[in-house]
């Protein structure tokens, strides 16, 4: 079964229709825990993108060779390998950013989204499709993280990417880690609202 979507559609699908954070409600831990700034979102997004793309490609390449009975262990091993690699690379070359993300880079290994994509997509599709699907999912995660980071950084610190745009701090509360819960909840509600309005306009 091959998908009939084009590469671009696959990427857009990951960012919008099946956005891992806002649509699939998966991999929420970093979305709450370290989405305090846009930069954090980008950094972890890059890590997830790397792991997703490499795992998808690996599985897609060897899909005919994987014994169906050890399917899941093979996925886990593949993901864990790439997570270890990106973990070591970040720790070595970007120690400051790595320190901010703490344990979350290692925890990518337990992200349901990656295993799910391997099982549902990469194990059935060819390399090119899997690659673009991986890119789409990774970017979708990154965009979601950046969106939350954008709201929290703007409201909490009055800055974007470290640049002062407001000149004051409107709501310091949003920079507290636990405000992630409120922020994600409110944003999800907001998107739902927009969607229902949009549908209603379209129908009527």
């Amino acid at each position: 079964m091959a998908t009939d979507k084009s590469n671009l559609q696959l990427v857009v699908n990951g960012i919008l229709n099946e956005n891992p954070i806002f649509r699939l409600v998966l991999s929420m831990c970093p979305a709450v825990g370290i989405s305090t700034t846009v930069m954090n979102g980008i950094m972890l997004g890059v890590a997830v993108l790397f792991v997703q793309v490499f795992s998808s490609c690996t599985i897609s390449l060897v899909k005919n060779w994987i014994h169906p009975r050890i399917r899941i262990p093979t996925y886990t091993l593949t993901i864990a390998t790439w997570v270890t690699v990106i973990d070591m690379v970040l720790a070595a070359y970007l120690p400051e950013a790595y320190a901010k993300m703490g344990i979350f880079v290692k925890l990518i290994v337990a992200f349901a989204i990656i295993t799910m994509r391997l099982e549902m997509f990469a194990s059935k599709e060819n390399l090119t499709h899997s690659f673009w699907d991986g890119v789409g999912m990774g970017l979708g995660f990154m965009v979601g993280m950046m969106a939350i980071g954008f709201v929290r950084e703007l409201l909490g610190l009055g800055t974007i990417l470290g640049y002062d745009v407001l000149g004051f701090r409107p709501l310091l509360f949003f920079i507290l880690p636990l405000a992630g819960f409120f922020c994600v909840g409110l944003m999800m509600g907001f998107f739902n609202y927009i969607e229902t309005r949009y549908k209603r306009v379209k129908q009527g």
Binding site: T81, T84, V85, M88, V89, A91, A92
Partner: peptide, 12 residues
């Protein structure tokens, strides 16, 4: 993993 460990550990 071993390969990337050797490469990155020194840099780290």
């Amino acid at each position: 993993m071993g390969g990337s460990f050797i490469v990155t550990n020194r840099a780290k």
